[in-house]
Amino acid sequence: MPDVDPAPRATYPGVCLVTGAASGIGAATARRLAADGATAMVLVDRNGEALHALGDELEQAHGIALYLCHQDILSEEGWDGVEHGVTHHWGGLDSVVINAGVSDAGTIAELSLEAWRAVVSVNLDGTFLTLRTAMRLLRDGGAAVVVSSASAMKAEPGTAAYGASKAAGLQLARVAAKEGAARGIRVNAILPGGVETPIWQGVPAFDALVTETGSEQAAFDRMAGFATPLGHYAKPDEIAGQIAFLLSPAAHSMTGSALVVDGGYML
């Protein structure tokens, strides 16, 4: 009988998909995976201008093949298009980073149903739709990381929608880890605490602190001084490095794990 080629297995970082790729942790992770030798990148974000700027940067720096998806992660039609395009061009994915998310604040007594649904739909429904596509496209031996939050495990007043949605996303990652294990697919979560990203911009308390202290960095330092024993928040590049570790062969025996990176916030 003729030899039959085995099904292709994932290599790190290989063909990568990153959501929320245009800024913050997503952009830092895209840069890190490109630097680590990704053969192609599927970058997803609602901010088309920033997404294409990042694409141009990565193409010039690394000559990498790119598939830029200017879409909402809640669009089933959009994900159908991603699945078709990835299958056509590369046959599958090797690494996936599910990062896109939103935040809001409000006590349970004061939170409107509309505000609740706005956060939960993106952070949970969007994670589900992304992960569903990922589990269909990941090659045997591939890996995914869900970006959750320390708020998934530590309760704070005013974080009902955000914390509940991130806790649900963490459980979704664990279920995916069990379902993917038979094919050697690993799914882990990372739970950052405070991270110096643009998500803080427009938050009234943060904007007021920027005005008071004179700069965003001073505002971050002030908040971290109160919130974390280490006295500082993480930089996006730091989180990107830990995501890269979870995707890499160095984490070969890790699946269903929750890597907490919070400066001691939960102590």
Rank of each mutant, 00 (worst) to 15 (best):
K235S: 15
G158F: 04
A234C: 15
G78H: 02
P13T: 09
A250M: 14
L129F: 11
G106K: 00
D3A: 15
L191M: 13
P236C: 06
A53L: 13
T107I: 07
P236T: 02
M153Y: 11
K178R: 13
I25L: 05
P13A: 12
V203H: 09
V175R: 02
A167Q: 12
F245W: 08
K235T: 15
A205E: 15
Q242F: 09
R31N: 12
L259D: 11
N188K: 00
G194R: 07
D45F: 06
T213N: 04
F220D: 00
Y67P: 01
A100K: 00
E77T: 11
E57V: 04
H89Y: 14
D3M: 08
V86M: 00
F206Y: 05
L111S: 04
N47S: 12
Q201D: 13
G202V: 00
A160M: 06
D140V: 06
A155Y: 03
W116E: 12
W90F: 15
D36W: 05
A28C: 08
P192Q: 01
V18L: 07
T107H: 10
V18E: 09
G91R: 04
G214T: 05
A168F: 11
L129H: 06
A115P: 12
N47I: 07
P2I: 10
A7E: 15
E77G: 07
A218R: 15
V82S: 06
A21K: 00
L51T: 02
M266K: 13
A134V: 06
L17C: 06
E77L: 10
Q71V: 10
G163V: 00
H52I: 12
A22L: 02
I190G: 00
D207A: 08
E110R: 09
R132V: 12
A118V: 05
L66C: 10
V175N: 03
L58R: 08
S257N: 13
P2Q: 11
G256S: 08
G91Q: 03
I190A: 02
S149I: 08
L246G: 07
P192F: 03
N123Y: 08
A177M: 01
D45H: 10
M1Q: 10
G225P: 12
R32H: 07
V195Q: 01
A234F: 11
L131W: 05
I108R: 04
V82D: 03
A168N: 08
V195I: 12
A152R: 03
N188C: 06
P229I: 10
L74D: 03
A100E: 00
A205L: 13
L259S: 03
V147N: 02
S257G: 14
T127E: 10
A38M: 07
I185R: 00
H89K: 14
V210M: 03
L137T: 06
A227P: 07
H70P: 14
L68K: 14
V119S: 01
V44Q: 09
L170Q: 01
A152S: 14
A21T: 01
T87Y: 08
M254N: 09
E114K: 09
M266T: 15
V119K: 01
G14F: 08
H70N: 15
F245C: 01
A50W: 03
A173P: 09
E196P: 09
G194C: 02
H252S: 14
I64V: 15
G24Y: 04
A65T: 08
R222C: 10
N99Y: 01
A144S: 05
A167H: 11
A173W: 08
